[in-house]
């Protein structure tokens, strides 16, 4: 782990991180990754390699019966930091 890498990851995660913090994080990540890295070397039998299909099942519902339009609009918009009418307002993107 190095500082450049940490700053790049912070960028990917959309988090502003200062130089000092990046340096601290570099040291901390080295210690944490060194510890959690033990899972890489642990022997895992080939049986469990293909497990996702049998254990994780998506629970779906029919895409029908929507709630009445606008039922929650007011409550949800009240929480938006900026709005214009019934829209959430953000800065220009393009």
């Amino acid at each position: 782990m190095d500082k450049e890498k940490v700053l790049n990851l912070a960028k990917l995660a959309r988090i502003e991180v200062g130089d000092d913090e990046a340096e601290n994080l570099t040291r901390e990540f080295d210690a944490i990754l060194n510890y959690v890295g033990e899972v890489k070397s642990a022997k895992v039998s080939p049986l469990v390699l293909d497990f996702q299909g049998e254990t994780l099942i998506n629970v779906m519902r029919e895409d029908t019966n929507p709630h009445e339009s606008g039922l929650y609009t007011k409550k949800i918009l009240e929480q938006a930091p900026a709005r214009e009418g019934d829209y959430i307002k953000v800065k220009r993107i393009l």
């Binding site: 912070a10 995660a13 988090i15 502003e16 991180v17 990540f29 944490i32």
Partner: peptide, 19 residues
């Protein structure tokens, strides 16, 4: 927003998760 809104441990774990 995310830099100032999240505390140190949260920033640490999000970045570690991204890694």
């Amino acid at each position: 927003t995310r830099g100032e809104g999240f505390g140190r441990e949260v920033r640490r774990r999000i970045i570690l998760g991204a890694y």
